[in-house]
């Protein structure tokens, strides 16, 4: 009962603290707000970059051409062999006949050429369309496929794909670094602002110590105050994220410049981002104030 009374008083004190030092609280809150908006922005951006990378990677296929003299049975066996290799997502057979039909449909010029052949004289090759799990070792997988007996060639657009993968890798890493750096900067700023808040309440802490308040009793209100500041500071960034991204998504029609770059749907990203924002605000606020008050307990 006593512990609850003390806790209740602590929480009340922390609310009082926010309003008693209103200008400083506003400083902390706006500080948190601005940085959290940036953090939220980077999180959503990195989500989108991730999504775009994943989309591109999904489309990357290894085309495996088989030797001309491969029989249907042998072709099936090659398909099995490819399927057993590591890093294989899916294997689809595309016969030379279906390729011929596709091409004829696509292009009248090709139609003229290809219609001279029938199914038995078709000059095209049977092929497998192979998707891989990890795009980064696609070269290795293609090499393994090309040494299989009966495989004529395994191609995946070497060079272009690798370059693309590298660029996205760099972009992703930069985004991560930016997010982490922003969180650290926020932590530092909050901790400093709360230090100033506490500095201005040094006397209060000193008197609390002198009248026999335990260290925990002194620390807790600042701790809650930090949580409160962090929470209040994350409200505007959360709202910005919630309404802002939704608005942007609708405005742009779900894509950026071209249909190739699809945006992540708002409800896939905003809730988790909001959660991250409020968590960062609260944790950093609590931690900053807790650390800052410790220094003043040596009286």
């Amino acid at each position: 009962m006593k512990a609850f009374r003390i806790l209740g008083r602590n929480i009340k004190d922390s609310f009082k603290g926010v309003f008693r030092n209103f200008s400083l609280s506003i400083a902390s809150i706006s500080c948190i707000t601005i940085t959290l908006i940036l953090v939220g922005f980077s999180i959503i951006l990195s989500y989108n970059v991730n999504r775009f990378t994943a989309d591109i990677e999904k489309d990357i296929t290894i085309v495996v051409f088989l030797d001309n003299d491969v029989t249907n049975v042998e072709a099936d066996m090659i398909g099995d062999q490819i399927g057993k290799l590591p890093n294989i997502e899916s294997v689809n057979f595309k016969s030379k006949e279906s390729v011929r039909q596709d091409w004829i449909k696509e292009d009248p010029t090709l139609e003229g050429v290809l219609s001279q052949y029938d199914a038995s004289t078709n000059p095209l090759q049977d092929s497998y369309l192979v998707k891989v799990k990890d795009i980064e070792i696609i070269g290795d997988t293609a090499d393994r496929i090309s040494v299989i007996d009966g495989v004529y060639l395994a191609k995946y657009g070497e060079g272009t794909v690798e370059e693309l993968v590298n660029i996205f890798d760099v972009v992703k890493k930069v985004m991560y670094i930016v997010v982490v750096a922003l969180v650290l900067v926020t932590a530092f700023l909050i901790s400093n602002t709360i230090k100033i808040t506490i500095q201005s309440r040094k006397r209060e802490i000193e008197i609390m110590r002198l009248v026999g308040a335990s260290n925990m009793y002194i620390k807790l209100p600042f701790f809650f105050e930090g949580i409160l500041l962090g929470f209040i500071g994350s409200v505007i960034p959360m709202a910005t994220c919630f309404f802002g991204y939704d608005f942007l998504y609708e405005k742009l029609g779900g894509q950026l410049f071209t249909p190739i770059i699809k945006l992540v749907k708002p409800n896939e990203v905003i809730y988790i981002t909001m959660l991250v924002l409020v968590a960062v605000g609260v944790v950093v606020g609590a931690f900053g104030s807790y650390r800052a008050v410790k220094k003043h307990l040596k009286i």
């Binding site: 006397r203 110590r209 002198l210 009248v211 026999g212 260290n215 307990l297």
Partner: peptide, 24 residues
């Protein structure tokens, strides 16, 4: 120890030259 100082201070009353009151 610093953490336990409050137990001593609860047995004491301390009056200072500069009062040490909280202005607010």
């Amino acid at each position: 120890r610093n953490r336990k100082v409050y137990k001593l201070r609860r047995k004491l009353g301390i009056v200072f030259q500069d009062y040490k009151l909280l202005p607010k």
